[in-house]
Structures are given as structure tokens and as C-alpha cells.
């Protein structure tokens, strides 16, 4: 359609500014990607990935895809990554993955495949050896969003409609998958209290964590009269994660530290006295 004008708008190099931006941000993107893959905790992976996506958004803008750049930030970084974070929270933020491989040979095979794939892909791109390109300046002449809109609602209208249907389906699907039907009436507070009494295990509310006048954090169990920690005072979740802090020996340690410090101080005083005595004696 615009074949004759292609040559006219052809360029052979980008601006120096873009080149500098590319080389800097590309490193950031790759680091982010590597972080997403190799971070032990899913949260860190998600954050690394978000960084990479923001960098990609910048690259979209640099490539003349203004609309996509914005969408990338809003939809991907803003919505999808947040969705990921929500799920990570649901599943458990702190549970770090073990990076130890369980399938024998998997890592070697994966490395080999990935390496071969990457090399081949790069070779394919290198093989294309493009010297000139057109740039989207002419296509964006009437505005990037307007250009996209005219394409979406003419040439790609069916695909667009179908993606609409896909989104509806996905939304319904997600709801169906995660929804749990409540099959019985929720118990009222009174009923639960009565049940507690019937079971006779723990009639009163659970004791609060922390030790009076010393600690009130939720991860510190309260002490029983004999000085041992009470299991009931901390959340079972924290117990399961092994995040309970034991402060029962803290008082003794503090005392020991105090004695140490005082003895240190007394020692120094004693030696000075001795010196003074020695001086006094010599006098």
C-alpha cells in the first residue's frame, strides 16, 4: 500500500539518546528477569518482574507504541502483577522455595535446551541482518491511539470481539474455579460459645501474647507462672512457620549482661584503686 514511500521514511540508525537508554535499561531488564527466575521468594520474583515490565513499558514508548506503553504499566504492572502479589499472599509470602532440583537431570537438560534455543533464536535474528527500517512515525502521524483504534475496529474487529468473549469467559471461569458454595448457615457467636462450653477444652478466650511490661508483640508467647512459654498465646500460623520468638531467657540474659557490664566497670575501678594504692604506698 505504501511501498513507494517506504524507502523515503527508511532510517538506518536510532538517535544516540535512545541507544544510551537501551543499553542502560536493557541491563536492568535482564537483571530483573534473572531475578524473577532465581529469587527464592515468590514476592521478590514478582517485584523483579514488575521492574522488568516497567522497563519494557519504556521500550514500548521508545518504539513508538505509546498506547501499549501506558497499557503495559497500567494493566501489567498495575493489575496483573498486583494480582500475582495477592495470590502470593494467599499462598504464603514467606515460604521460600528450595532451589534444590528434585528431578534427576532436569536442570542439565533444561540448561542445554535453553542454551540451544537461545543460540538458535539469536542466530535466526542475526541471520535476518536488517540494515534499514521504516519507523512508525508515518503510521503514528494521526496519533498512535487513533491508528490502533482504526485498525482494531476495522481490520481486527472480529479478533477484538472474540477477545471480549474470551475475557468474559475467563472472568466467569475464575469465579467458578475459586468460588466455594456455602452449604450451611454460618454459626452465630452464641452457638460457637455454647460449643466451646460443650467441648470443655478452652472456655475462656485465649490468653494474650507477650509478657506484661516487657513485650507485647504477637510473636512472643506469654510466660506461665513457672517461666515456660505458653503455646496458646501465639497464633498457630506463626508456630507452624517457626516464627515464634522465645524471650523466656531474656531476663536472665539481661541480668547477665548487666552483671558483666558492672563487673567490667568495677574491675576497671579496682585497678585504678590498686594503682592509686601502689602510688600511695610508694609515697
Amino acid at each position: 500500500m505504501i511501498a513507494p514511500s517506504l524507502a523515503a521514511s527508511a532510517a538506518s540508525t536510532t538517535s544516540t539518546g535512545e541507544a544510551v537508554q537501551f543499553w542502560i535499561l536493557a541491563v536492568v531488564a535482564v537483571l530483573g528477569a534473572l531475578g524473577a527466575v532465581f529469587m527464592k521468594k515468590a514476592v521478590h520474583s514478582a517485584l523483579s518482574l514488575a521492574g522488568t515490565m516497567i522497563v519494557l513499558a519504556v521500550f514500548y514508548l521508545a518504539n513508538g507504541a505509546y498506547f501499549l506503553g501506558v497499557v503495559q504499566i497500567v494493566v501489567y504492572t498495575g493489575a496483573i502483577m498486583m494480582l500475582f502479589l495477592f495470590v502470593v499472599m494467599l499462598v504464603g509470602v514467606t515460604a521460600a522455595d528450595s532451589l534444590k532440583e528434585t528431578i534427576r537431570g532436569q536442570r542439565w537438560l533444561a540448561g542445554l535446551c535453553v542454551l540451544g534455543f537461545g543460540i538458535l533464536l539469536m542466530a535466526g535474528i542475526a541471520n535476518a541482518s536488517l540494515k534499514e527500517w521504516n519507523g512508525v512515525g508515518r503510521a503514528n502521524a494521526g496519533g498512535n491511539v487513533e491508528g490502533l483504534a482504526s485498525l482494531i475496529f476495522t481490520k481486527y474487529v472480529f479478533a477484538f470481539e472474540i477477545t471480549g468473549a474470551l475475557l468474559i469467559t475467563a472472568a466467569v471461569g475464575a469465579m467458578v474455579l475459586t468460588h466455594r458454595e456455602r452449604t450451611e448457615r454460618a454459626a452465630t457467636q452464641r452457638e460457637r460459645a455454647e460449643q466451646r462450653v460443650r467441648e470443655g477444652k478452652q472456655v475462656t478466650p485465649l490468653p494474650a501474647p507477650g509478657v506484661y511490661a516487657r513485650h507485647n508483640a504477637v510473636d512472643i508467647p506469654g510466660l506461665l507462672p513457672d517461666g515456660t512459654a505458653s503455646e496458646l498465646t501465639v497464633s498457630p500460623t506463626l508456630r507452624a512457620r517457626g516464627q515464634v520468638r522465645d524471650v523466656s531467657g531474656e531476663a536472665l540474659q539481661d541480668l547477665k549482661a548487666l552483671e558483666q557490664r558492672s563487673s567490667d566497670w568495677l574491675e576497671r575501678g579496682r585497678s585504678e584503686d590498686a594503682d592509686a594504692n601502689a602510688k600511695g604506698a610508694s609515697k
Partner: peptide
């Protein structure tokens, strides 16, 4: 899209995003 000088590549990227969103959900 940039190399070709038209917006079709961007359209496809756009659709990819939509499909990716659905897939993530």
C-alpha cells in the same frame, strides 16, 4: 511494528496482553 512501519505488530501485542490477562486470571 517499528521496523515495518505499520501498527499491526502493536495490535498483536495488544491482543497478546488481553489474552495474557485472561490467562492470568
Amino acid at each position: 511494528a517499528r521496523l515495518h512501519g505499520n501498527l499491526d505488530g502493536q495490535i498483536i501485542a495488544f491482543f497478546t496482553m488481553v489474552v495474557a490477562a485472561a490467562e492470568v486470571v
